[in-house]
């Protein structure tokens, strides 16, 4: 119950900034249009590049724009609050509360993600649908799989961002690791280019890294490239990374708590 309360308050907190949301939807849509035309030119030059057709490619662009903020690919969200509280020392207060820190921030970030999905996820998708030829989910199973894969994508992204924010326990300022991770996430999630176009070992590496669980895997599920047992496998890949990374968060937090010195009395 506590976690639902935390999540719903995070949702409401983000929904206060209406002009920011409208501006964000506009920006997502502009980028969606630019990438759509670029990909259309690419798929005109090579009609089945990476096993996608032109409609798949444009669909990929708009799904990417919809997920960009939902999974906070660039960083941001609840973990930015954590990084700031570590820097200022307020995290000491969080630590003596009788609540698990990882669960608290995860709930808050899920509330944020729900808000961003409903606004900055849905609105650009509608605009994309109006402007371009976009594929709807390949089958009911694909639609259900996509719906399951989004929360998993958010949890993977959250755990990575939590680890990044935790570096502030040692570095004080986590903005270096934050930007570094953001760059890796944009590239290896499929956001800057679908991973199906990555050649050879680079493609293999990109698909194995947790970043692919944030954009490439949900998009491929929508496009019907994972069916049957393969669909279960794709969801298990996301869930596996989510679990492993959450355990890593616990471990790092335990290390940091041992190191933390609370001053004053």
């Amino acid at each position: 119950m506590l976690h639902v309360a935390v999540a719903s308050r995070a949702f409401r907190r983000y929904s206060t900034y209406r002009a920011a949301t409208v501006a964000g939807v506009f920006t997502n849509s502009v980028f969606g249009v630019i990438y759509s035309f670029a990909y259309l030119a690419l798929w005109k030059a090579n009609p089945d590049a990476g096993g996608y057709d032109a409609v798949d490619a444009v669909t990929f662009v708009w799904l990417g724009q919809a997920l960009l903020m939902t999974v906070a690919l660039w960083g941001g969200g609840a973990t930015d609050d954590l990084a700031e509280r570590i820097r200022t020392g307020d995290v000491a207060i969080d630590l003596y509360r009788p609540v698990d820190l990882v669960g608290w921030y995860l709930a808050s970030d899920l509330g944020r993600a729900a808000y961003h999905f409903l606004t900055r996820g849905l609105a650009p998708t509608v605009i994309g649908l109006l402007l371009f030829d976009i594929a709807l989910p390949d089958s009911p199973a694909a639609a259900l799989g996509f719906a399951l894969s989004i929360p998993l994508a958010v949890v993977v992204s959250f755990a990575i961002r939590f680890l990044v924010a935790s570096t502030a326990f040692w570095l004080l300022d986590a903005s270096g690791p934050r930007i570094l991770t953001g760059a890796l996430a944009i590239f290896f999630s499929g956001m800057s280019l679908p991973l199906v176009l990555f050649p050879g070992w680079l493609g293999g590496l990109a698909e194995a890294l947790p970043f692919s669980a944030m954009i490439q895997v949900p998009n491929d599920i929508w496009l019907g490239r994972h069916t049957g047992l393969d669909l279960v496998g794709a969801l298990a890949f996301q869930a596996g990374w989510a679990l492993a990374l959450l355990l890593a968060c616990r471990f790092v937090l335990a290390l940091a708590t041992r190191k933390l010195v609370v001053q004053g009395g």
Partner: peptide, 23 residues
């Protein structure tokens, strides 16, 4: 990080050219 972001940015365009000759 800043150099990496930008290097990866162009890498995305360069990788496109492993599937095409001209855009």
């Amino acid at each position: 990080g800043s150099m990496l972001i930008n290097a990866l940015d162009f890498a995305g365009i360069a990788i496109m050219f492993s599937s095409i000759d001209s855009l």
